[in-house]
Nucleic acid binder design. Structure first.
Lengths: 188, 188
DNA sequence: GGTCCAAGATAGAACGATTTGTATAATAAT
DNA sequence: ATTATTATACAAATCGTTCTATCTTGGACC
């Protein structure tokens, strides 16, 4: 299930798909930049779509892991974590390697009935579940409702940062988030 | 500058690109579904990218037009319009033909330095400018700040509706928007 | 009303490059 | 000795784009 070449292929594809999109990057480009033979790719993955699914799984795991650690490091106190979400976001979208949300891109390139689109949706649901957990543990009045609001602000910030190049989008979202937090009885 | 065949090509490409993405739809598919000869396309557009830019211009014009009319029809009173934005959004994302935001998709498929990506960014800036105008005319305390917040909620709602299939995303956004509006001295 | 010409649209072939995926056979590693 | 990886060739399709050669059409002129 796990192998060095397979890992290398996923990482290389992760970088290329993230930068240029899925259809725009062919398997030839992936194997060339990975320095791997063509049949090695098709030995580890049944098709390009399977490679993409593996890429999305790795991206989901890595991103959520980084995000949670980043939030919890920024806010040791659980009551500060819902807001710290936007500090993590800010660091992400300001990074030189920021190329938008890979799951939004995947959903854009593959129809709603495609497994790739569905995998992207699952990632979004997991992120929302994490936010719900944060809001509940922070002691918000209506944790689910607050999490929904924060989630939309976060998604919007990523979209505006990428599409319109608004590098300050996460800070803008943070300002709106503070209003929602006050309304939920937090940070008042 | 304007011609029936050209119009037909733009409309056909608009539908196909919206449904399947830009790279996934070739010019052959466009001309076939438009019932037009290949040279007719290349007579009106220098390249596929030029066709895409024409599609984005038409989409921007049509969408903003529909959106503004829809908002103003739902709220004759300017003070109700910032919130009516989310009723328009709700109608859009619940529609059977909803396939996400075409400009988000364009930005995902073309790098930040590509004219196609830049055109997408310009649309986002125009939408934000409209929101600012709405918030100012509604008499909000801090019109620009409120518009930023509402804009992020709206963008987030479209993303969640498309990627995760949350058909109620616009109503969720509306609930959060009401909190922001109260904070801005509106709808209290 | 008829004639002619230019513009535009047509189908179709051809271009070279690239796409995903497979088959084969030799090489390297464990 | 088995397994993984390699290079190469191949298939069949599609990509964006150009070219040619035919056909339709709509006005200008007489």
């Amino acid at each position: 299930m796990t192998s060095p070449k397979r890992d290398l292929l996923i990482d290389t594809a992760l970088r290329l798909f993230g930068r240029h999109g899925f259809h725009a990057v062919g398997v030839d480009r992936v194997i060339e930049e990975a320095g791997v033979a063509r049949m090695t790719l098709y030995n580890h993955f049944k098709s390009k779509d399977e490679l993409i699914l593996a890429v999305l799984r790795r991206r989901d795991e890595r991103f959520r892991n980084w995000f949670m650690r980043r939030v919890e490091r920024a806010a040791p106190d659980p009551r500060g974590r819902p807001l710290a979400v936007f500090d993590a976001l800010d660091e992400w979208v300001r990074g030189d390697d920021f190329t938008g949300c890979m799951f939004v891109a995947a959903a854009a390139e593959y129809g709603g009935d495609d497994p790739i689109h569905r995998a992207a949706g699952e990632h979004k649901d997991l992120m929302l579940a994490y936010l719900r957990d944060l809001c509940a543990k922070a002691g918000a009045k209506n944790p689910a409702g607050l999490a929904d609001g924060l989630n939309l602000l976060a998604e919007g910030a990523v979209a505006m940062a990428h599409v319109a190049g608004h590098r300050d989008a996460a800070r803008t979202a943070k300002a709106a988030a503070e209003v929602l937090l006050r309304d939920a009885g937090l940070q008042g």
